[in-house]
Each structure stands twice: as structure tokens, then as C-alpha cells.
Simulated scan of single mutants.
Amino acid sequence: MARIHPTAIVDSKADLDDSVEVGPYSIIGPNVKIGARTRIGPHVVVEGHTTIGCDNTFFQFSSIGGMPQDKKYGGEATRLEIGDRNLIREFCTFNLGTAQDAGVTRLGNDNWILAYVHLAHDCQVGSNTIFSNNASLGGHVHVGDWVIVSGFAAVHQFCKIGDHAFVGMNTSLTQDVPPYVLLSGNPAAPHGINVEGLKRRGFSREQINAIRNAYKLIYKSGHTLDEAKAALAAAEADTPDAAAELRLMREFLDTTTRGIVR
């Protein structure tokens, strides 16, 4: 049987694995499914059509699966999906999706989500990310894998942040961030690539140099965005050892809708 504290309220229709722990005074709603070995701390509310994977830890006072903060929301059965091995610290708020988008808010695997983080409706967050205290995402934001969003950073709705990017403390972000780019400020400005993060993740010297050169093509060459994409395509063909990394940057530029921070 799941280990449920006697003061917790767990709806009889909730689907909890036998190894789940639920702490004192927490509330689990009827449409919630929680996977093996996940721990729900004290005073946590999990509601809505929410699916949580295995080996997650939720600290006290988080609100998970609440209705979207969107005036267009009309009570549709939208969802929140959380993967495996995530750490969610105190006072986090994750909202359901809306019918105006994919209908689901997603958080991947192996993420560190620190205190007071807000994931708004329809956000799509990858895996191995770190969100520091008070980082907030507006609705419909897409965040790639291995991204770091520092404390008190705020991301405007519909923005995209590419893989391995680094968003500095107190950043106000209103445009898209290409993969590997390090930026900060209000308004946000680019400051090179996330070299330290790439080294820690095992990128080779050749790959890092190719990414640095790609950054220069986008930000230092005076190219228009279309010219930068053409230059990246040429560099991709000439740099087989880093072709995948350059392709990731070029394809991101192809799909930006808000424009990139420049």
C-alpha cells in the first residue's frame, strides 16, 4: 500500500503506485496518476488531469496541476505531464495546458526545479534543466534540454529557449534564445556561448570551437538572419565533427517566431 499520512486527503479515484509516499496535509485529486517511488511532501496539492512519473520528489507547499491562469480557459480537461526523477522544491506552481495550444503542460526527466518556480499553461520543458529560485515562464514557452534559467529570470509567453542555453539572473526575456547561447540583462543581451556547461557535458574542443564560430556568424558578422542561416549551412558541411551541433542552431533559427535575442 502507498504510504499516506493520516492527515492527507487522497481521492479514491486517484491512481497511486504502491510505493508512493504522501506527506501530512497534502491533497491528491481524483484525476491524478503518480508513478513508483515518487514522494509528495507535506502541504502539497496535486489536482487536475495530472500524470507524474517515477522517482520524483515534491517538497512542501507546491501547487501542481492547477487550472491555467488564462481567461480563455473554460474548464476543458487539459493535462499536466511530469516525467521521472525530477526534484521540485518549495512553493512551485505548475499549471494545466489549454485547449488553445496542445492541451498539455510538460516537464521532462531529471530536472532540478528550485523554490517558487512557475511553469505556466502549455509550457514544454525538456530534461536535465535547472530552474533557480523564482524563475518564471509565461504561457506556451518551450525550453530545450540542459538549459539553466537563473534566479528571478522571467520569460515572456511564446518564447523558445534552445538546448544548453544559459539565462542569467534577473533576466527579462522577450525573444527566443538559440541553443548554446549565454545571455543576461533587462532587456536580455547575448554574451557568448555556454562554454563551461558544454565542457561539463563532455563536448570536445572541436565541437565547442565550431559552436563559438557559429555564434560569431549569428552575432558578430553583421549578417542578416537569413545570411547567418546560409553561413551555418556551409559551416555544417565543412565541419563533420560538429555538424549535429551546427544543424541544431540552424534549425532553431528556421523555427523562431518571435525573433532571437540579438
Rank of each mutant, 00 (worst) to 15 (best):
L183F: 11
P42Y: 06
N170G: 06
V181T: 13
T239I: 13
V117C: 14
T51M: 10
G192K: 09
E21T: 15
K13F: 08
Y116E: 03
Y180C: 03
Y215E: 13
T256K: 00
Q60V: 01
I148S: 09
A244N: 12
Y25T: 04
F59C: 03
G126R: 09
N109R: 11
K216Y: 11
Y25M: 06
W112S: 15
G259V: 07
S204Q: 04
V104K: 05
N213W: 00
Q100C: 10
I40F: 00
R200W: 07
P190Y: 03
G222D: 07
A115P: 03
A210R: 10
L183E: 07
N213C: 02
Y73F: 15
Y180A: 01
I211F: 05
T51S: 15
L198R: 08
E81M: 06
N109K: 13
G97Q: 05
R3S: 12
N128L: 04
G35R: 13
C54V: 02
T257C: 01
A189R: 15
A244G: 08
G74W: 00
I34M: 05
Q60T: 06
V46M: 12
R201N: 13
G185C: 10
I9M: 03
F61P: 01
E196H: 13
R85M: 04
A230T: 11
P30Y: 14
P24Q: 12
A77T: 02
V141E: 00
E47R: 06
W112G: 05
